[in-house]
Design a protein around this nucleic acid. Structure first.
Lengths: 339, 339
DNA sequence: AAACATCATGGAATCGTTTCCATGGGAGCG
DNA sequence: CGCTCCCATGGAAACGATTCCATGATGTTT
């Protein structure tokens, strides 16, 4: 029972008195007579045999797994995305190799390299940069699907994205509808994909006839300290802003903390709304108005695109998933300015 | 350049005019003369060759990856744990196959089966139940380390655990020190590993000479709705509780929401403290006092135990990692009872 | 200068599967 | 009864790497 090395298909064949081809058929669904099948299964059970995915993978030239690269698994939105990929992959019988690139293109390139060596059946990535050999990976052994983000230099890679622009637009319109005119925008650094959101903000304001004050649009790296600094800078510099639109949950968090620090009441003194409806938005006091994009759906959809719709991939541009405005209590109508 | 099938070691050998053994040595660190090595690398680059982990794995009988099973990757604490495992695995050159069992032992058993077939070098699990063949997995191809939780029936499996008992003790002592005597305990269902926390709560109270009222100890399944129901039940049934100790972040969240619903001010009407220092604890108003256990450390340590200290595994019982009481503003001194 | 140790190198076996192809027997049909 | 057809089955050749072992060419020692 406790054999030195785990049983192989050969051992099972010998024990059942059949050829290895027959054992293989039993386990991978070939046609085998009922009696033989039973004998083989009994022998396999007896020997505690598990087919080796390595042997099979070598022969089949695929590992039966996919790779998933995210910036950070602890970000609640990314965690949801991971969960979505996991759910879809499981339903399709594939396993998932997950790794975090932490926003570092070099690290990401290493991960891609490794996944290609593993001969994964495909890669889903929230890409950090163009350093990795995305084209090579897509060509050599597997296909690539981007999720949540795209890379400007690689338009041919299929992608599944949240409708960020639509989300920002609805937030902006909502705030403007409440009467706000001096709306602070906390966004990401210009070079990054965050540009979509800032653009949507500007466009919507322009469309509503509200002038954009450059001074009210600030950018921060995606990190807690940077977000906090940006929010503090904005709120201290411009005591006359009446609303803050945070382009991400880290920025929203920063806005809330800074407001509390400065003794500004939400929404009496300043309204706050953000992108990303993470769990704490509801726990905040007051609960935060936010735009929800479903990380789960994005991950699930990306995985489907990768594994079950090879034909549709990349046709008709990226798949856009809808966002939803969740109104809570953090935004109020315009009041006379403070001070 | 865009060959039909990706280049193999044979192609590289032929292109470089050497034997395949030499190519193998170049890539896996054997001794090769500098000139030959250069020729081989040039040929490999030319052919865009990547060694196949499948071929290597078959020969070496190991895949170079480990498996990680958690109940749910979207739980912030579990996400941190995943990040810790990822960090350690990366530093040791292994990849990680992640899957979520969602608390279902049957699903977990399937995942274990799959990982064994993949011939992973080891499995780290936050186990859901004893249905999976943990012993078999540990024996056949890989070793198993439990993280964050253990299974009573499997004491021989090594484990890395937070010092839950210590954490609950410090919370209980803290609340009692503020004068609280009627402390409500929101815990997990009895059968589960959550028992450790309840036991620590009871023991600490006994030690402090405070009688335990059974009516104040309630249990909930680890889900939002169940947690909310438990918290609501407790606070409505016993309007005289002056403090709540939530044994997990979901329960803490429920306590905060229910208190808000019932118009109880924190900490004026009721003090709230919880296990798990998740991100929103700081964003809450008032910020929540909590006990921090580092998911990252638990994951990292479990991975180290699995991969680099096979000798120390399982000796001297589970590894206990310290917890830390983070005092914020959600607990106040005892006041005259409400009503 | 002979014997020997050292080193780079290639050949070949091996890891555990899948799958093509050949074989043999039984059933169906004329 | 003989022929064909089909189906279950086994043998053997991949798949792409590692590694033991043998070989020849060096360099070292007495």
């Amino acid at each position: 029972m406790a054999q030195r090395r785990s049983a192989t298909i050969k051992d099972v064949a010998a024990a059942a008195g059949v050829g290895i081809a027959t054992v293989s058929r039993v386990f991978s669904g070939g046609s085998v007579s009922a009696a033989t099948r039973e004998r083989v299964l009994a022998a396999a059970r007896e020997l505690d045999y598990r087919p080796s995915a390595l042997g099979r993978g070598l022969k089949l030239r695929r590992s039966g797994g996919i790779g998933l690269i995210v910036p950070d698994v602890t970000d609640p939105f990314r965690a949801e995305l991971v969960a979505g990929v996991l759910a879809c992959a499981r339903s399709l019988g594939e396993h998932v190799i997950v790794d975090a690139a932490h926003g570092d293109p070099a690290r990401e390139a290493e991960i891609v390299e490794r996944l290609v060596e593993q001969r994964v059946d495909g890669i889903i990535a929230v890409p950090a940069g163009e350093l990795a050999d995305w084209r090579g990976a897509a060509r050599v052994c597997s296909s690539v699907v981007f999720a949540d983000r795209v890379l400007p230099g690689l338009p041919e890679i299929p992608a599944v994205l949240p409708d960020d622009a639509g989300g920002v637009r609805s937030l902006t319109e909502y705030l403007a509808g409440l009467g706000h005119r001096r709306i602070g925008f906390l966004g990401g650094v210009p070079g990054t994909p965050a540009g979509v959101r800032e653009r949507a903000f500007r466009d919507t304001l322009a469309q509503l006839g509200v002038p954009v004050e450059e001074d009210l649009v600030v950018a921060a790296r995606p990190a807690r300290d940077a977000a906090y600094a940006a929010a503090a800078g904005l709120l201290q510099r411009r005591a006359d802003v009446t609303a803050i639109l945070a382009a991400g949950h880290l920025l929203g968090e920063a806005a809330v903390l800074v407001a509390r620090e400065l003794d500004l009441r939400i929404p009496a003194d300043v309204s706050v709304a953000m992108m990303d409806d993470v769990a704490w938005a509801e726990l905040c006091d007051p609960p935060l108005t936010a735009v929800a994009r479903s990380g789960h759906d994005i991950g699930y959809r990306a995985c489907e695109l990768l594994l079950r719709e090879p034909a549709r991939r990349g046709r008709g541009g990226p798949v856009l998933l809808p966002t939803e405005l969740v109104v809570r209590g953090s935004c109020g109508p315009l009041r006379p300015p403070r001070r």
